[in-house]
């Protein structure tokens, strides 16, 4: 494969990269929301809520992501017809549900690491559990969340390559297609470089965030 050909395929690779980024950011975003509620559920005094959240995390951390993707894309429509999703939606759902399970444990650990005196002070001031959680405890956990959430972002960015298996054209699949069409594997080099650029980007952003949230410490 000639250098010109590689340069010519860069725009296609960039489009694939954008898709990968989009997949990662949106999935982690919804994963965070899901994870926050799962974490609060795990910390709940209500045993049933705790157990349901525990079960969810157990299920999604204990089975392969690739299997979850296949399950949502191929198996769900067979079980119940209205649950038919196209490749993009299936990919988002699988990645968000999966990252939610991991993020739940990250968030729970961060919340539990906050000094118990904080909850007591909030209660002594008349705040309800909900007010204390969302005004006092959760905001303090942000800084402690940043490094592990950064990890999760990078892990998911790479794992998102798995959705190429249900035909979604993100960076991995775009690269494979070019490689097939040109009967050459050289294209994997610029593609790997693009993955590195994206993970580096996240690393830098998270280092910045960590600094920003450290002002009060």
């Amino acid at each position: 494969m000639s250098l010109e050909k590689i340069i010519a395929s860069v725009p296609i690779l960039l489009v694939g990269s954008l898709r990968t980024l989009e997949l990662t950011i949106i999935s982690v975003f919804f994963g965070m929301i899901l994870g926050l509620f799962l974490a609060l559920g795990r910390l709940s005094k209500n045993v049933i809520i705790d157990k349901i959240c525990w079960f969810y995390i157990w299920l999604f951390r204990g089975t392969p992501l690739l299997m979850q993707i296949f399950f949502i894309y191929y198996a769900l429509p067979m079980i119940y017809k209205p649950l038919t999703f196209n490749d993009i939606t299936s990919a988002f759902i699988a990645l968000a549900l999966n990252s939610g399970a991991y993020l739940a444990e990250i968030i729970r650990a961060a919340i539990q690491s906050i000094d118990k005196g904080q909850m007591e002070a909030a209660k002594a001031l008349g705040m309800s559990y909900r007010q204390a959680m969302f005004r006092i405890i959760v905001p303090q956990s942000y800084r402690r969340l940043i490094p592990p959430v950064g990890n999760e972002f990078i892990a998911l960015l790479k794992d998102s390559a798995l959705v190429s298996s249900i035909g979604m054209t993100e960076l991995m699949r775009t690269t494979a297609q070019i490689s097939n069409a040109t009967a050459s594997a050289v294209i994997y080099i610029p593609s790997a470089a693009l993955y590195l650029v994206m993970t580096t980007l996240f690393t830098l952003v998270f280092e910045k965030l960590e600094k920003k949230y450290s002002v009060y410490e």
């Binding site: 000094d115 005196g117 904080q118 007591e120 002070a121 909030a122 002594a124 006092i136 905001p139 303090q140 009060y216 410490e217």
Partner: peptide, 11 residues
């Protein structure tokens, strides 16, 4: 209530 360890909100 005032606590031994102050328990101010650090953020």
């Amino acid at each position: 209530m005032v606590f031994q360890r102050f328990n101010l909100f650090p953020h």
